[in-house]
Structure formats: C-alpha cells, structure tokens
C-alpha cells in the first residue's frame, strides 16, 4: 500500500462482545484470512476464558466459534498460535500455560505447563514451532522444547531480569528470544550451541532505552528492526545487521535507531508492526495510533511520523492491537471495556 499523499482512516468493521471482563490480548491465527481461508482470531480475558472468533464467508462478520473455559482458574493474560495454527498456547495468572489442540471446531486442552511460581504473563512460539517461551512475575523466562505427543520439556530457566517479565517474543526468522520487563529493560537470549541459553544483550536506559516498564515489542517483516513500547510514553526503534545474525557468525548487537515520543500521554500497552510497515499502538488513553516510516528523508525530520490517531477507539484502555495476517488491511484491538474491535484501514 502506498501511503504517500493519501489520508487514511480506521473504520470500525465490527465489535465483538462475549467476554465478561477486560480483554487482555488478541492473536490472529496464522495463514487465515488469505487464499479463501476464513480469518480466525483468538482473544483472552480476565474472565478466565479464551474465545475463538471466525469470519463467516457468507456474512463477512465474525462469530464466536468456541469458548475455551474450565481450564484456567485465573485471568488469561496472553495467547499465541503455533505457526501451523494447530495449537494455541495460553498464559494465565494461575501460574500455568495451557496448550490447546484444534480439531475442527473443537479445542481440547492437551497439556498444561507448570513451573512458574506465580502469574504467567506471556507465551511465544518460535518460527518453526519447535520451541516455546514463557515469562512471568517470578522474573524468569522459561524455554520449552516441543516434543512429539504433546510433550513439553523445559530446557532452560533464564534469570536475569530484576522485576516481573511482561512479554516474551521470538524473532520471526531465527531462534533468538526477546523479553521485556517491569525493570525497564529488554533482554536478548541466545543458545550457545550446547543447549545452554544465556543473555547476550540488555537494552537499558544506558543504550537510549526506556525509563519505565517495557510492555511489548514487535518486529518488522524482514526482522532487522524491532519496536518496543513503554510506560515512559515512548516507542523505541531498534535495528540490527540481520545478515550477520543469519550467518551464525557471532552475535550482532541491536542498536537504538530512534525514539518516537510526544504522541502518547498515557501508558502504551501494545505495539504491532504490520508486514507492510505500519506500526500500530494501543494505549491507556483509549486511542489507537498508526505510525509509518518517514520516507521524505529530510534533515531534521523525524524518522517515523504519525499516520493517524483514532481517539476513543474503545471506551477504556486499549490493551492489545494486532494486524491480521492479510497485512495492514485488518486490525484487531482488545480493551478493558470487555470488547474486541475489528478495524479496516481505508484511504479517504
């Protein structure tokens, strides 16, 4: 999509109701919404359930196809589809991570990962679906190996953060793990070839990093840039020499490229970089904002500019924003107001 010389708006397509408490997170099922496969979205909530929503090919509207309940006993904080879309992992304040298998319209809990001392806050699959990472309030990051027969073996418990870990996210192409925390830092974790995982880099205020809780991070399509969002009201763009990383010849450190500040006035909870290059944020001021790279390249101009701000996107905090696998056409958002909204980016 060309963004030059056009104006855009986020048009609300549908409001999904059903959760009875705040919705913390949404996740699009991979490879849906393309090639005639109906789009599928998962959402998780303070009501202890996960809901699966599917777009009806006939009406074009999303309907709740399944409610995954009676497994978690506390808030489900985040959910993540395996790359194949066969499984969904759910992280809960009940200290467990559940693995669900999808057969037809049914979802069955096939495994429960225990080990964290208390709240699990985030879960992420690596690109091949062979590894899973979880993190939580106990300040640790766990790496699990996915074995045949729905077995999951913990291969590493990573200590290093000094406060609770808000999110884990695997790099989209290589097996490098990123975590961000209430301790204001982002940590990069790498395997040394001997099944030993360790922290290879910590991005802090000393590296032009954040000055308060880092809530989320997201990668661009090529994986050579990362965006992080924080309670310090800023976004940070980080970059790496991706060729170096891929060759496996040593670790290429991530460097601060720029900060995007002055746009948010309350905590930024969620950030997602679309495959087409648009950065969406969800924040505690109930708004959704979209940013794009400033291609004008004029001296003294910021490197990223605000494409649009959708005020009052929800009635309360926006906790999660996620672009659909289709690219930057559809955006899903989740809120404290208990609803999920589907938005379409249209030029006006």
């Amino acid at each position: 999509m060309s963004l030059e010389g056009e104006s855009f708006e986020l048009r609300e397509i549908q409001r999904l109701e059903g959760h009875t408490d705040r919705v913390w997170s949404v996740a699009w099922k991979p490879s849906t919404g393309v090639d005639g496969v109906p789009a599928v979205l998962a959402s998780c909530s303070g009501d202890k359930t996960v809901r699966i929503w599917e777009k009806s090919p006939s009406t074009g509207s999303f309907q709740c196809k399944a409610v995954l309940d009676e497994t978690h006993t506390r808030t489900v904080r985040s959910c993540a589809w395996s790359p194949s879309g066969k499984n969904i992992a759910t992280a809960s304040f009940d200290a467990t991570t559940a693995i669900w298998e999808n057969v037809g319209d049914e979802y069955e809990c096939v495994s429960t990962l225990e080990g964290h001392e208390n709240e699990v806050k985030s879960v992420s699959w690596n690109a091949s679906g062979s590894l899973l990472a979880t993190c939580g309030r106990d300040k640790s990051v766990w790496i699990w190996e996915v074995l045949p027969g729905n077995e999951f073996e913990c291969v590493s418990v990573l200590q290093g953060h000094t406060q609770d870990v808000k999110m884990v996210q695997w790099h989209p192409h290589v097996d490098i793990l990123f975590s961000c925390s209430y301790d204001n830092s982002i940590k990069v974790w790498l395997e040394d070839g001997d099944d030993d995982w360790h922290c290879v880099q910590t991005l802090t205020e000393a590296n032009n990093g954040h000055t308060s809780t880092v809530w989320a991070l997201s990668f661009n399509a090529s994986g050579d840039k990362m965006v992080t969002c924080s309670d310090d009201l800023s976004l940070k763009i980080w970059g790496v020499d991706v060729m170096n990383t891929k060759s496996g010849e040593g670790y290429a450190p991530w460097k601060h490229i720029c900060s995007i500040s002055g746009y948010h006035d309350r905590t930024i909870f969620s950030v997602d970089w679309s495959s087409e290059g648009i950065i969406a944020t969800g924040a505690a001021d109930d708004a959704i904002r979209l940013f794009v790279e400033n291609k004008d390249n004029l001296v003294d101009e910021p490197m990223y500019k605000l494409l649009l701000k959708k005020d009052k996107a929800h009635e309360m905090d926006v906790n999660s924003v996620q672009w659909s696998p289709e690219g930057d056409k559809l955006l899903a958002s989740a809120s404290d107001d208990g609803t999920i909204k589907i938005w379409e980016l249209v030029s006006v």
């Binding site: 303070g46 506390r74 304040f93 709240e119 309030r137 609770d164 209430y182 308060s212 809780t213 505690a284």
Partner: peptide, 15 residues
C-alpha cells in the same frame, strides 16, 4: 508509585 499504577499488578493482586 510504579506498583500502584501498573494495572496488570493491580489485577493480579485483586485475584
């Protein structure tokens, strides 16, 4: 102050 204004911690505390 940080703890009191982290809504995730508040939500967890209230559970």
């Amino acid at each position: 102050n940080k703890q009191l204004n982290d809504k995730e911690r508040v939500a967890a505390a209230l559970e």
